[in-house]
Amino acid sequence: MTSMNAYVNGGIADIANIGLCDVALEKAMERTSSLPGMVCLYGPSGFGKSVAATYVANRRRAYYVQAKSVWTKRHTLTAILAEMGMRPASTIPQMLDQAAQELAMSGRPLIVDEMDHLVEKNAVELIRDLYEASQSPILMIGEEELPNKLKKWERFHGRVLSWVPAQPVTLADARKLVPLYAGEVDIADDMLTHLVELSGGSVRRVVVNLEMIQDTALTSGWESVTRDVWGKAALYTGEAPKRRL
């Protein structure tokens, strides 16, 4: 396995979940013929799963689709074929054959983000059909309860090689995010630790607070920010503000 640089594509920090996502797909791509080829990265919203999936799709030359809440089976296949640069056939079975053939012939994996939407639309077997017909690696990205939701489909659940839980943001992750979102000021480790503690594991909340800290620091003329410098100023926690009476 090759290591990734700290900053890639001019704007993505190499946080832990990018590595987890990449390793998960790599396992499916390098599996032996006797092992199943679907893998799943799951976790709470805000943990950076979609960012990780986008990066890994580029790195591994994977076809990538992000499911929508309104998608039907036809919409799903149409989106996959569009990602492949193919014109959809007229029927769903024909579209399935098109997509499966392209996966098999290209040797490229498929990443399905927001897989929970397909579960809610009872389109899970569509993904299994694509896998069975192509034997191509498929990485699914979803929310924390996705593995439990998929237990309803035993034949599908048994074809998942690896279930990979996304990890909460860490101090090491926060340090890597600073140059991208607060590169004009120095933010001390005690302040970064505070941001991680407030984040509830969410990369997104850390990013929002880094941008807020930089804006405040530049406006206030601070070159560096520690907990003492920041004091009791507000930070973003994702909670709605309390009503003032």
Rank of each mutant, 00 (worst) to 15 (best):
G85Q: 09
Y63D: 04
Q167M: 12
V119K: 03
A67D: 06
E143L: 10
Q98T: 06
N5G: 15
N5Y: 07
D113F: 06
L103P: 02
I15A: 04
T237Q: 09
V8N: 12
G11L: 07
E154P: 13
L195Q: 02
D186T: 15
E83T: 15
A13Y: 02
Y55L: 13
D116G: 12
S3P: 04
D14Q: 09
D113I: 06
H194V: 01
M84D: 03
V23E: 15
Q167I: 05
T219G: 01
T54E: 09
L35F: 08
A57I: 08
M38P: 04
A104I: 00
V8P: 00
S106W: 03
A6Q: 14
V70N: 11
K73D: 08
T193P: 00
G183R: 13
M191C: 10
S162G: 02
V178N: 07
R243K: 11
S220H: 09
G142T: 06
R87K: 15
V169E: 00
E184M: 12
Q66R: 15
H117I: 04
E83P: 06
D113G: 10
I111R: 04
N5R: 13
Q135E: 15
V208T: 15
I15Y: 05
S50I: 00
Q101F: 05
K232R: 15
K232T: 15
Y7W: 08
I213G: 04
V112P: 07
Y131P: 01
T78Y: 05
R31V: 04
V70D: 12
V196P: 00
L96N: 02
V185T: 08
K73Q: 13
N209R: 03
G85L: 07
G200A: 08
